[in-house]
Design a protein around this nucleic acid. Structure first.
Lengths: 156, 156
DNA sequence: CTCGTGAGTAGGAAATCCAAACTCACCATA
DNA sequence: TATGGTGAGTTTGGATTTCCTACTCACGAG
């Protein structure tokens, strides 16, 4: 019998394995703000320098960030988001929205994002097919992986 | 002068401080699937039991989960999402979407979610005001916190 | 020549994580 | 009445990570 220990295969888990370590998503936040220099990242995120260096290496390896010199002699680098990195912004926006509402009751927000339409951005997750906002009770999960049901491994 | 070490005040950071530890969002995933028993969580997530116990305590304290006995004599418990917990599902769906696209090229997905409209759910983050999908280049950030600009502390 | 800045490395203490074993209460069966 | 099984954790001790401070190295400014 196979190893009885592997968890549910899941893109959420895989994504978090990449960007779920402490500070990683905050790095993406800062870099999306256009703020890609090492010392700026240290200041704005509050991460230890060595941990930040490790995160940056990992995010570059994963194709989420690129590292480019904006000056040779003195060598100076800047990290910028790739397309994949930019596409993490919706994740950041939904996290921000949750925090704004549940941790701050919607008042005294530390940051407001303006949408090009002129309004303050309030992100809503919708269904691409019908356009309606997504609510828990409208969803049904269908595991596709061999041997897995919603409840767990198929024997269950 | 104040401590020069505090990072940018940010709801994303605050939210991650709550649910950003390893396994926490996977706990929310399982619990939203209706899968709230300790041993099931251990199997489906693959977390060490002690770490899982710590995460559950924290999530209950944060008001994201509740713990309820579904049987006295033998005492048996089940964790369920609160309203705040359910509202993390959009975050999970955007993470899933990112992973499905960038880590699996959209093929061979381990889980498909069906929306009540009958279609496979492809979550899109939109602006509540105008309804358009959110793209990086349409956003402008406006920090509100004392002494902070996009670049960093106001002196910068 | 000395100071300051950017982009890291180095070293060791402190905190976390992990796997496996253990507990405790109960139920089933034989 | 022993034997085993399940659920829900706690304990233990070692392996990893994090954290913090300091240090480096290259340069440019005064």
């Amino acid at each position: 019998m196979a190893a009885t220990k592997d968890p549910r295969p899941c893109s959420i888990a895989d994504t978090l394995a990449l960007v779920g370590e402490k500070y990683s998503l905050l790095v993406v936040r800062e870099v999306c703000l256009g703020n890609g220099r090492f010392d700026q990242l240290v200041r704005n995120i509050g991460a230890p320098r060595d941990v930040l260096a490790a995160r940056l290496r990992r995010l570059v390896d994963a194709g989420i960030l690129t590292k480019r010199a904006y000056s040779e002699r003195p060598q100076r680098f800047e990290y910028r988001p790739t397309q994949a990195g930019l596409e993490l912004e919706p994740v950041l926006m939904t996290l921000k929205e949750w925090g704004d509402r549940h941790l701050r009751n919607g008042v005294d927000l530390p940051m407001v994002v303006e949408h090009i339409c002129g309004n303050e951005l309030v992100p809503v997750v919708t269904c691409a097919a019908c356009g309606d906002p997504v609510h828990h009770e409208d969803l049904t999960a269908h595991p596709q992986a061999e041997g897995w049901t919603v409840k767990g491994p198929s024997a269950a």
